Amino acid sequence: QVALSRTQVCGILREELFQGDAFHQSDTHIFIIMGASGDLAKKKIYPTIWWLFRDGLLPENTFIVGYARSRLTVADIRKQSEPFFKATPEEKLKLEDFFARNSYVAGQYDDAASYQRLNSHMNALHLGSQANRLFYLALPPTVYEAVTKNIHESCMSQIGWNRIIVEKPFGRDLQSSDRLSNHISSLFREDQIYRIDHYLGKEMVQNLMVLRFANRIFGPIWNRDNIACVILTFKEPFGTEGRGGYFDEFGIIRDVMQNHLLQMLCLVAMEKPASTNSDDVRDEKVKVLKCISEVQANNVVLGQYVGNPDGEGEATKGYLDDPTVPRGSTTATFAAVVLYVENERWDGVPFILRCGKALNERKAEVRLQFHDVAGDIFHQQCKRNELVIRVQPNEAVYTKMMTKKPGMFFNPEESELDLTYGNRYKNVKLPDAYERLILDVFCGSQMHFVRSDELREAWRIFTPLLHQIELEKPKPIPYIYGSRGPTEADELMKRVGFQYEGTYKWVNPHKL
């Protein structure tokens, strides 16, 4: 086992960053958080920038500027975001240094004079007029057009580079997404736009490419001749908990499936790229999406959770019991969808996408189930092999396979070949997804960000279904809070070829 401390991990990262040409360590950078008073800024962006600063992973002359409508001070920003920093008493001095680099400007999102004030403020910072500028839009999409237009007109660096990070949702359907994309691309070049999907920053999602293309053993079996089906799962054990009003506007397909799960599907299904260059990788992902037809209604199961009468606390409440959810809402909190990649490698292999709230566990994984062994000599005792990439929690890679049961006879039983990170790298604290992705933006690497043509294809696949749901308002199937979801989803999976045995229990190697 390799035991690495946080300091050692960050030392390795620093070495990698400083050796590259793309990370300008000594240049002045300004990180501007648009929507600095909001939840995302408070819980994710400010803490992430602090962790990067604490670990010495930001360029040395980096300033952080918050911008929002609320009249706040840096002290206010500190008060609301610091509880999420997880700072230790030993880091007190470092924390003071961090907040000394912070400033805040209040202004409207659609007022040109406010942006001119913001620009004057940035120019007044040390070497601010020639600094590289990175704008993070932690804002609702309704203000994107006004904000990007004003940034472009008043706040661009004339000497350094300018980059803009856009948070999902990128529209509600193909038409609104196209409108937003066309607007942003009329102001910024594609190499300046970073559409963030934080799932692409997760260690195991990034590991998929290495697993596939750096190991000879997987190449020959990664196709329709050997793989019976692919299941991509995202499960949350909690409901909307008072935030249903926002969720109800989008629903589970827009929230998770059309982005996170579809991105994971691309990494499983794509061909080997010409290189690890950002556009070479994204070219292959677009090719996969172009091979997927629009979702067919007979390959869809929609569910909505109801309270568990035997549960406790939140578990007793259904989705419609959330006071922020519109009365009688038919918005799905669970969806199972089957897609097919219609190309030579994957023809006929079902890709089953499942996601839901208020389920029995927290889990995100990719599961490849292989065909049955031909010419069975073990009297149907063999179960199908599976390769599982567990994204969260407890990152893991393992192969479910058959071995001989101890004893006199040739009785096979299920076991696993474990390729888990935790076994080799004991207690290594890896940077989280937002840390990686923000560092990628500083480096100018777009590999783990969504390109406009990729986004367009993703919406093309799901828009007809979303429009049909909005028009017909089908009643989702009720499922109990804390269950596996509607049984109809299991029946759909069985119908397209997935075999669920229920006889195997994964042993978490992190707890051995």
Score class of each variant (00 low, 15 high):
380 Q>A: 08
404 K>R: 14
463 T>L: 08
355 C>H: 04
356 G>Q: 00
365 E>V: 04
292 I>M: 10
470 E>F: 06
269 A>L: 02
324 T>C: 13
300 V>I: 07
398 Y>V: 15
326 P>Y: 10
363 K>Q: 15
305 Y>V: 02
424 R>C: 05
463 T>K: 05
492 L>Y: 03
391 V>M: 15
318 G>N: 07
345 R>T: 14
455 L>Q: 09
447 M>T: 03
352 I>A: 01
280 D>R: 09
425 Y>D: 15
416 E>D: 15
357 K>S: 05
277 N>P: 03
411 N>L: 07
468 Q>G: 08
506 W>R: 14
303 G>Q: 01
276 T>C: 06
314 E>V: 05
456 R>A: 12
257 M>E: 00
360 N>A: 09
364 A>E: 13
358 A>M: 01
409 F>W: 12
478 P>K: 09
408 M>Y: 05
274 A>D: 09
297 A>Y: 06
328 G>C: 12
404 K>H: 15
426 K>E: 09
374 A>H: 13
429 K>V: 13
321 D>Q: 10
339 L>M: 13
478 P>D: 08
378 F>Q: 02
274 A>M: 03
412 P>F: 10
405 K>L: 13
343 N>V: 02
290 K>P: 00
436 R>I: 05
255 D>R: 08
394 N>Y: 13
291 C>N: 08
451 R>F: 02
280 D>W: 05
436 R>F: 12
412 P>I: 11
278 S>T: 07
506 W>K: 15
441 V>D: 00
385 N>A: 10
323 P>T: 10
468 Q>S: 10
480 I>G: 09
391 V>P: 13
278 S>Q: 10
334 F>T: 00
494 K>E: 13
368 L>H: 02
473 K>R: 10
475 K>L: 14
482 G>Q: 05
361 E>H: 12
424 R>M: 06
403 T>Y: 15
445 S>Q: 14
378 F>L: 09
498 F>S: 14
349 V>C: 06
348 G>H: 08
379 H>Q: 07
288 V>K: 04
367 R>G: 05
406 P>H: 15
411 N>D: 09
339 L>Q: 01
362 R>P: 12
414 E>R: 09
464 P>G: 06
396 A>L: 14
362 R>I: 12
419 L>D: 06
445 S>F: 14
257 M>K: 00
483 S>A: 10
318 G>W: 02
400 K>W: 10
505 K>N: 11
458 A>N: 14
278 S>M: 08
510 H>V: 14
292 I>V: 13
455 L>P: 02
363 K>L: 10
378 F>P: 02
364 A>D: 09
334 F>G: 02
487 T>G: 04
352 I>F: 07
338 V>K: 13
256 V>T: 15
300 V>S: 10
340 Y>C: 05
416 E>A: 11
388 V>W: 04
469 I>K: 07
356 G>W: 01
344 E>Q: 07
399 T>C: 05
274 A>P: 07
296 Q>C: 11
314 E>T: 10
256 V>E: 06
368 L>I: 14
307 G>W: 02
420 T>Y: 14
373 V>D: 15
464 P>H: 07
305 Y>K: 02
453 D>N: 07
403 T>W: 13
507 V>G: 11
272 K>W: 01
510 H>N: 11
318 G>H: 05
326 P>N: 02
425 Y>H: 14
454 E>P: 01
271 E>F: 00
359 L>F: 00
360 N>H: 07
302 L>W: 05
347 D>C: 12
472 E>Q: 12
455 L>I: 04
494 K>P: 06
408 M>D: 15
473 K>N: 10
489 A>Y: 08
290 K>E: 08
370 F>T: 04
354 R>I: 12
342 E>L: 07
323 P>R: 11
271 E>T: 03
287 K>I: 04
